[in-house]
Nucleic acid binder design. Structure first.
Lengths: 190, 190
DNA sequence: GTCTATAGGAGGATAGAC
DNA sequence: GTCTATCCTCCTATAGAC
């Protein structure tokens, strides 16, 4: 009958696009925007450089598509614990998609832009959950800590932070998040 | 008499080298390694691109010289306070030299290398000051926090962290550093 | 000590064949 | 739907003039 098991051209196209995107993510994470070449992505995807251009139009657009993230919500409940839970997800399952942005955040304008946009939504959630006059600064510092740790662990692969079990990191960060979300014990010191 | 007020050729050379290095630092911090061009550095220094190559031999070597840091010691005393003091220096006077490395740390191998080397010495100091079995992880997290904050403040210029007075940031980080250097109050939560 | 000219290579983008 | 061929721009690096 009809309905042959052969792939339609549309299916083939989606297949190739997917392979290209997967390869692009990998290489963008590894080398950052500038040092990633269309040719290298094409080779890794097993296709020709012309095809990549044909599908995505430009390197910028390829990056844009490769870095697109599913919006990532802050879980409800006690703010410090919610942040730890969010952090746990990032530490246990390497979040490839967000690493695409992160790797290039310091050197590529669109990456910085995308990162800012993502951070902004996060910070709003945190600010809402933190009842303090300086909630914005507290939220900002929490964000800084989270990116600092993720960068050291997955991108720079720095010693202990890269190797430690997620649980150990979370346990050590808990007091930090607690003090930043609650804002008590200003005068512990001495 | 002799001793004319005119600059010797050696002096002129040192002058030009200095101007080139200053321009290079500025542009490397702004754009990162890849997007910085010899031509742009030369223009900013008011000289010709050929001269830059003549003096420094290669872009790599120019970067190397521009990123050279005076070794930066951890002050003595209570570890948490010493770290806060170190952090204060970074937050109050924008540390241009270290930003050269930092801007490119995610996308340029030599920058990552140099950063690692600097971090290693720091971590050793911190580990020594922290009496705990997991001192290496604690030190690593402290390092991650410091870079995270500096990156957000000076490179990404993210909202509150970029704008807040250094004192406010230090006050909020104090409990973090205390818990990380002392390792008590594991069970505050709930 | 500083500049001009140019070699030489890499990579993004385009046009068109199959 | 995929590939080949090529254009064009940009940049590091070199050689040599002033």
């Amino acid at each position: 009958m009809s309905e042959p098991p052969r792939r339609t051209r549309a299916e083939q196209r989606r297949d190739s696009e997917e392979r290209i995107l997967a390869a692009a993510r990998e290489i963008f994470v590894e080398r950052g925007y500038e040092r990633t070449t269309i040719r290298a992505v094409a080779a890794a995807a097993g296709v020709n450089a012309g095809l990549v251009m044909h599908y995505f139009g430009s390197k910028e657009e390829l990056f844009h598509r490769a870095a697109r993230l599913p919006p990532d919500e802050l879980p409800p409940g006690d703010p410090a614990e919610a942040l730890l839970e969010a952090m746990r997800r990032r530490l246990e399952a390497e979040p490839v998609a967000s690493l695409v942005l992160l790797r290039s955040v310091l050197t590529h304008d669109e990456a910085a832009e995308g990162f800012r946009a993502g951070a902004r939504r996060w910070l709003e959630d945190i600010e809402e959950a933190v009842p303090a006059a300086d909630a914005d600064l507290r939220a900002g510092l929490i964000g800084a800590i989270m990116t600092g740790v993720v960068v050291d662990r997955y991108l720079l692969k720095l010693g202990a932070v890269a190797d430690a079990p997620a649980e150990d990191i979370l346990a050590l960060l808990r007091p930090c998040f607690e003090s930043l979300t609650r804002g008590q014990d200003e005068g512990l010191g001495g």
